[in-house]
Amino acid sequence: MIERTPIFNAVTYAIMLGGLLVVLLPVWMAFTAATQTVEAVNRIPFSFALGDELLTNLGAAWQRGDFGTKLANSFILATGVTLGKVMIAALSAFSIVYFNYRLRTIFFWVIFVTLMLPLEVRIVPTYAIAANALAPLQAILDVTGISALIAVLSGVQVSLQWNLLNSYVGLILPLVATATGTFLYRQFFMTVPDELAEAAKMDGAGAFRFFVEILMPLSRTNMLALATIMFVYAWNQYLWPLLVTTDRGTYGTAIIALKQMVPNPYGGLPDWNVAMAAALIVMLPPVVVVALMQRWFVRGLIATEK
């Protein structure tokens, strides 16, 4: 459909430009602040003039935030979460779409419900499990009386322990389960014609082979789109890493380090210039990922390439 609506177009552009401004202004402000000296940055009103202290500030921020370790940690966390999510989401969607078993609808709804229970809501139980990942199993053994039975029979007191606090596994696992990804894949799998699965069956390919050799290559764009979203999501996690890591020197993430660099109101002259330089550093990796992936990202979300 071709429409000629110059006024409508102008309004659309105006709104888009407004949105762009809203997004870019804080970034620009952070950037100018990061170039200024601590005196300049505290002058009121704030001056958008560029200073020449950018490298000094970045250096100071890098030192103080220990970003060498922290960025590496964040990177491990984000990559782990992304890979885990992409794989688990693909497998769970595969199960829901292609297999007909009695509990399918129930599993589907269970996954669906987790959409309404983000990590922040279930943070206390999640923490309890991270403190001892085998606690649920222990509880089952206790309730069913199996652990009592073992104690009577062998004299061994069953006490399962698997502490995930202060570990990469503990950082990553609770963030991996994802309903969003499962849904994205599900929508895509449902657009794949049934005959394709049947043709593979006739060709002798089993379910797993079909999944790996046919479905996965076909959902490449979806996978990249999901990976992009999830990388940014995981990179920006704050609450969970804060809780699960007490040994921040070793396992702290860049976001935690950044938060610690925000000047507190009771100290001396607040060095916003260094904090903003740190913000720039922390912002960079997701920006790079999105920039590299955006071509796939858009295609994966809108198109069904077949």
Binding site: E195, L196, E198, M202, P217
Partner: peptide, 20 residues
């Protein structure tokens, strides 16, 4: 028997070729 064990080959209406 599974489809692959029956020795049948099938041609589908919409061809069902593997696009990739």
């Amino acid at each position: 028997l599974e489809p692959r064990e029956r020795g049948c080959a099938m041609v589908f209406q919409n061809y069902a070729l593997y696009p990739h």
